[in-house]
Simulated assay, not measured.
Amino acid sequence: MKVKKQKRHRKTVRFFSVCFGFRQPFKVLCDGTFVHHLLVNNITPADTALSNCLGAPVKLFTTRCILAELKTLGASYSHSFQAANKLTIARCDHEKRKGADACILDVIGQNNPEHFFVATQHVDLRNKLQEVPGVPLIFALRNALFLEPPSSFQHQFVKASEEKRLHMTEKDHKLLERKTGGLLENEDVAQSNDVEGLESHDPGLQAHNTRKRSTGKKLGVKDRVQFKRKKAKGPNPLSCKKKRSHENPNPSSIKESKEGDNIVRRNRRRKRPRRDKSIAGADKDSK
Rank of each mutant, 00 (worst) to 15 (best):
S252H: 11
Q110L: 12
K4Q: 14
T180P: 02
C30M: 05
H94C: 01
C30N: 01
A190N: 10
C240V: 15
F157S: 05
A46S: 04
K7E: 14
V40F: 08
E131H: 12
F34M: 07
H36Q: 07
E259H: 05
D194L: 15
R23G: 02
S239V: 10
V123T: 08
G181A: 15
M1E: 08
S278V: 09
S192A: 11
F34K: 02
Q226S: 07
K258G: 04
I263K: 05
R8N: 14
E259D: 07
L137G: 02
C92I: 03
T48V: 14
Q121A: 07
A56F: 02
K4T: 14
G216A: 13
P235G: 07
E162W: 08
N111A: 10
Q110T: 14
L145Q: 06
R213V: 12
M168K: 10
K86A: 12
D188T: 08
R126Y: 02
A140I: 04
P249T: 07
L238V: 13
R14A: 15
K218H: 08
K242Q: 07
N85E: 07
G220M: 09
F157E: 04
R10H: 03
F22V: 00
T62I: 08
R64K: 13
N127H: 07
V132F: 00
H201T: 13
E247D: 12
M1A: 12
V264S: 14
A46R: 01
Y77Q: 09
P235D: 05
G182A: 13
L39P: 00
L38I: 03
F16Y: 04
G234R: 08
A84L: 03
T48N: 12
G220I: 05
K212Y: 03
C103F: 00
I138T: 00
D106S: 10
S80V: 03
A49E: 04
F61E: 03
F34W: 04
C19D: 04
S239P: 00
E163Q: 12
D47T: 05
K96F: 14
N248Q: 11
L29Y: 03
A84G: 05
H201W: 12
